[in-house]
C-alpha cells in the first residue's frame, strides 16, 4: 500500500490555483522529493497532505488516513517540519520536546531528547530559551520534534535551508538512515542538488502542476538539473554552487 496517494488534488486561493490536479503515489520506504521553483505549489501540497488545509477538490490518503476527514489521525501518524517553523520562543528545547512527548504520549522522552540532542548537536543549548538560539539551532530542534515519536512517514519543507554545510551533511545522513529503516520521507525543495543526492523519487511541480516524475538515481546531478530546467522552462530554476 502506498504511504501517500493523491487523486486530482486541487487547491485554489481566490482566483489563483496553487495546486492543479496533483495525482501521485509514494511507496513506503521511498525518499520522495517534490522539486520546484518558488511559488510552484510545494508548500501547499504539504499543507494539504498533512491536514493543515482542505483541498478545493480531489482526494488524498496519507498513512492510510484521509487528511480531510481524519486530520488528527494523520498528524498522529506522521512527523511534520514546515518551512520557517520555530520552537516556542519562551521554552527551552528540552521543555518543548518534553511537551511534544506529552502530546504524543511518548514514554521514554528523556532518553529520546538526549539521543536527538546528541545526533543533531544541540546538546549545548538544550536548556537555553529558544528565543536566543540561532536559526540553524532552532531548525535542528524542530527536526528532532518531527522525528521524536519515530513515525513511519515524515514531511519536511526545505530541510537544509538554515543549516551550515557540516550540519547539512549530518542531516542528510539522518534522513537517509531514516529511509533505510523502511520509513517514508516526503520532502519539498527548490535545490536540485539536494533532490539529486537524497531522493529515490522526484516529482517536478511548476505552476501548481506535476509536470514530470523521475528516478534521480538513474541520472547524474547535471542530468537532473538539465531535466529540471527543461521541465520548468529554465527561467526560475535555482542551483546552488
Amino acid at each position: 500500500m502506498p504511504a501517500i496517494e493523491t487523486t486530482n488534488l486541487t487547491r485554489r486561493f481566490g482566483d489563483v490555483t496553487a495546486l492543479d490536479g496533483l495525482s501521485l503515489s509514494v511507496e513506503s520506504g521511498a525518499l520522495f522529493g517534490l522539486l520546484g521553483p518558488n511559488g510552484s505549489g510545494k508548500t501547499t501540497t504539504i499543507e494539504l497532505l498533512t491536514g493543515q488545509r482542505e483541498p478545493s477538490s480531489g482526494s488524498a490518503s496519507v498513512a492510510g488516513h484521509d487528511p480531510v476527514t481524519e486530520p488528527m489521525a494523520v498528524k498522529e501518524a506522521i512527523g511534520i517540519l514546515p518551512e520557517r517553523e520555530d520552537p516556542p520562543s519562551f521554552l527551552t528545547p528540552r521543555e518543548y520536546l518534553t511537551f511534544v512527548g506529552e502530546v504524543r504520549e511518548i514514554d521514554d522522552i528523556d532518553e529520546r531528547i538526549e539521543t536527538w540532542a546528541e545526533r543533531l548537536e544541540f546538546g549545548g543549548v538544550v536548556d537555553a530559551l529558544a528565543t536566543g538560539l540561532s536559526e540553524g539551532e532552532r531548525q535542528r530542534v524542530m527536526l528532532a520534534a518531527a522525528f521524536l515519536h519515530d513515525p513511519e512517514l515524515v514531511f519536511i519543507d526545505e530541510p537544509l535551508v538554515n543549516l551550515d554545510p557540516i550540519m547539512q551533511e549530518q542531516v542528510k545522513a539522518v534522513l537517509a538512515d531514516y529511509c533505510e529503516r523502511g520509513n517514508t520521507l516526503f520532502l519539498s525543495t527548490h535545490y536540485v542538488d539536494v533532490a539529486a543526492e537524497l531522493c529515490t523519487h522526484v516529482g517536478i511541480v511548476e505552476n501548481g502542476e506535476l509536470v514530470a516524475e523521475c528516478d534521480p538515481r538513474e541520472m547524474s546531478e547535471d542530468e537532473l538539473l538539465e531535466y529540471f530546467i527543461a521541465e520548468v522552462g529554465g527561467e526560475r530554476a535555482e542551483v546552488r554552487t
Partner: peptide, 8 residues
C-alpha cells in the same frame, strides 16, 4: 502548534 502536532 496545530501545524506540527496532533492538537486541534
Amino acid at each position: 502548534s496545530a501545524r506540527t502536532l496532533p492538537l486541534s
